[in-house]
Simulated assay, not measured.
Amino acid sequence: MIKINNQTIKPESLFKEITNPEQRTILKQMAANQVDYVYQNLSHLKFELLFRSNTMRAARELNKSGVKFTTFTYAFPNRKLWDRLSNGGFLLKNGVSPSVGIQDILKNGSLYAFECSTGIAIVLYLATLYSIGSARFNVLFDHLYLMDWQFDEDLQIYQKYGDDFIPGDVLHFNNPDFDPKQPHWRAENVVFFGNDSFYGHGVGIRNASTIIKFLNTKRKPNPQKSAYLMNLISRPYYQGFL
């Protein structure tokens, strides 16, 4: 349910204010879930809807960008803009605008390779840029660093267990019997689009059964457990930007 200023709100009552079809779909899903989504005012809700739609936009763009999938050992960035660190992370070079650096990944995707958790970080930084604008992004994320789940303190990510999946959420497929020779397939982090559609770097935009079938090809000999979609949700703390 959606609550604004302690009042339960029906999504249809907001349609005059919220005209974007994708954001209306998000509203309907939130209203249908048996969880309270609480906002101080309409502006807070509208910002979250914007951020969620921008997360999906960024995921679609990264999927089309030509970036490659690889492990931390072999990860590489465009070295004109980023320094590659010994752990496989990317650190923005001095003098490079953070907004230029993060968007270069879309512009020159063939010059980048990384694994799925860094892919999710890139999606969320792009969504942040689209939601708050380049001027504020450049102030908040000076010396931008991309590595696994290590986010800047100004992009707070929290996790919760539950099945109240909302488009724009980051979800996680677990592969408990992964092949030890391919530990990067122990899990797949994905952006949820709704309607059984997910984006994960390395697998593309697929439904759940397709992702599970793929992960099941990356298991150890004589596996006992199938890969599965976890009841674990990762979300930015949207109101931290307000």
Rank of each mutant, 00 (worst) to 15 (best):
I4E: 06
I4K: 07
N6Q: 12
S13G: 10
F15I: 06
N20T: 07
E22G: 15
Q23D: 03
I26G: 04
V35H: 10
Q40Y: 12
S43H: 11
F47C: 08
F47Q: 13
L49D: 06
M56I: 08
A58Q: 02
L62K: 01
S65C: 01
V67M: 02
T73S: 15
T73F: 15
A75E: 04
N78S: 10
S86M: 13
N87I: 08
G88D: 04
G89W: 00
L92V: 09
V100H: 08
G101W: 04
I102P: 03
Q103T: 14
L106T: 03
L106W: 03
G109N: 06
S110H: 13
Y112W: 03
F114R: 03
S117A: 12
G119L: 07
I122T: 03
T128C: 13
L129R: 02
S134W: 03
F141K: 00
Y145Q: 08
L146S: 00
L146A: 00
F151P: 02
Y158S: 11
G168D: 01
P176H: 01
P180V: 05
H184Q: 15
H184K: 11
W185K: 07
F192A: 09
G194T: 06
H201N: 12
G204A: 03
N207C: 11
S209A: 15
I212C: 05
N216G: 05
N216C: 07
N216L: 04
R219N: 11
P221E: 04
S226P: 05
A227T: 05
A227E: 03
L229A: 01
L232D: 02
R235F: 02
F241M: 10
